[in-house]
Structures are given as C-alpha cells and as structure tokens.
Design a binder for these strands. Structure first.
Length: 260
DNA sequence: ATGACATAGTGTCTATGA
C-alpha cells in the first residue's frame, strides 16, 4: 500500500498536474494540503473519475486539507485538533484524520509562522504543541498510524541547501525544531530519513530566485510512521520530477510504500 | 540573496506563502 503526501498549493488551479501524477503513480492514499478552496468547491467529480474518494476539510482562499483514497471511502475520525481547556476554536482548516485499510491517517498543514518573531510564529508553536499532545495520545493506543503533511519545519541544517537566506525564517527556528524532535521522541519514524539517512531529499523549492533549477531546496514535508507501520515500510521517496513540470506546485509529493 | 514568483479573492490591487 502506498501512502503519499502533496502540498498542491491550490487544488483547483493544480488539478491537471495532480491528476497526471495520480494516474501515473496510483497511490492508495493521498494527503493533500493547501487546497485554497472551500469544501464545496473541491473537485470531487474529477478525482472520482480517477477512482478516488475524498474526505475534505476546506476553507476559502487559504489552507485546506483532504484525504483521498483509491476505491474506498475514508472514514473520518477527526476534523481539527483537540483543544485544551479554554483554548479558542481554530478557524483554520489544517488537520484531518481518517481510518483507511486498518491505518489511522492524519493529514496536516502546520502553520508556517512567518514573519518571525510575531503572533503568527506564536500561533505556529501553539499549534505544534497541540499536535504533539494529540500525537502522543494516538501513539499510546498502539494502533497503526501515519502522520503526513507539510510540517513547515526544516528539521536540521542538513535539510536545506544553505541556511544563509533563511536564518530569520520561522522554518529554521530552534523552537519548532525542538517541537519536531519532541514529536519524534514519542516513537515516530521519519520515513524519508529512514530511507535516505545520509542525504535526505528536499520536498520544497521556492518559486523565487531560480531555486528549482539550482536545486536550492528544503525538506519541510514529512511522513511519520508509528511502530506497527514502521515495521511494514518497504520504501520511501520524493516524486521530484513533479516540481519541474509546467505549472508545478512549489512542493513535490513524497510517499511511503508499506507491506500489506 | 526577505525576493526577481505564484496563489485566490477583496480583483488590475492586497494578503499570504516559506
């Protein structure tokens, strides 16, 4: 079974590229981020024509996440992260969770937190804390789990071409990196790092400053596996070529192949 | 190398992304 994650940067505008990729790679489960459309505007019919059922948590203009499953309807287990006592409701559509073929799959789009410092960075850290709290409760169940999405954190300086232009960027700050390490310490396996421990591939290349042709990338999209799923991992990778096609998203999809 | 790009809606400009 193949589970993929792809920040599409606008699912309506990106539909031709998304469909071409689905058609070629045929993932069984796909976590999409940055839909930038309402749940009603999501292109269900076009994806259904390719054999995919969709669970959608949309929002006008910004954010938005969805889970696609080939040939089956995903069973929703959660929409939005649980709130701590007194915490205000989250109006941003960034978390969706579903049961698929015996695995609970969480699709997430963590806030980018720029500019740093500031209220958006504070929101990022609060969101990350909420995610870690929920992830801890999930992994404690021992159930097969996958957390996939755009975490908006570059885990280490080895996960970026150069830190020079990014020193003041929210993606590289010590606090989100510490939150990332705390999350992994719960027992999650970083699938891409597991597959490529020395040179872990990038998943994002900015549109600006010729960064794609220069391979000036960042690793900010991640797939995390709980222990029972980690045991089943056969392979993981990044479909890097999709970043180079006409009208590409600034992210490339990543995926993990699991034994049945 | 803080953007020379790309996105969607409020729309020929603004806010946002990372």
């Amino acid at each position: 079974m193949r589970i993929a994650s792809y920040n599409v940067n606008g699912v309506v505008n990106r539909l031709p590229q998304l469909c071409a990729w689905l058609d070629v790679t045929q993932p069984d489960v796909v976590c999409l981020q940055e839909l930038k459309c309402t749940t009603a505007a999501f292109p269900r019919r076009e994806l259904k024509a390719l054999g995919y059922e969709a669970l959608v948590h949309g929002q006008a203009t910004w954010n938005g996440v969805a889970i696609l499953v080939r040939g089956a309807v995903p069973l929703e287990t959660r929409r939005g992260l649980p709130l701590a006592k007194g915490e205000p409701a989250d109006t941003q559509s960034r978390y969706l969770e579903a049961a698929v073929n015996g695995i609970v799959v969480a699709c997430l789009y963590l806030p980018n937190g720029n500019p740093w410092p500031g209220p958006k960075f504070d929101y990022k850290l609060a969101w990350f804390k909420r995610l870690n709290r929920h992830a801890a409760s999930l992994i404690k169940t021992g159930h097969p789990l996958v957390l996939a999405g755009d975490f908006n954190v570059v885990p280490t300086d080895a996960d970026i071409y150069s830190t020079a232009s990014w020193k003041d960027n929210a993606l590289l700050q010590p606090e989100p990196r510490a939150a990332w390490r705390a999350l992994l310490k719960q027992g999650w396996t970083d699938a891409l790092k597991q597959q490529f421990p020395d040179k872990t591939p990038y998943t994002f290349w900015s549109y600006l400053r010729n960064r794609w042709p220069r391979d000036a990338g960042l690793r900010i999209d991640h797939v995390l596996l709980s222990p029972p799923v980690s045991k089943r991992m056969m392979e993981a990778g990044v479909d890097k070529a999709l970043r180079g096609i006409e009208g590409a998203s600034d992210h490339a999809p990543l995926w993990v192949e699991l034994a049945d």
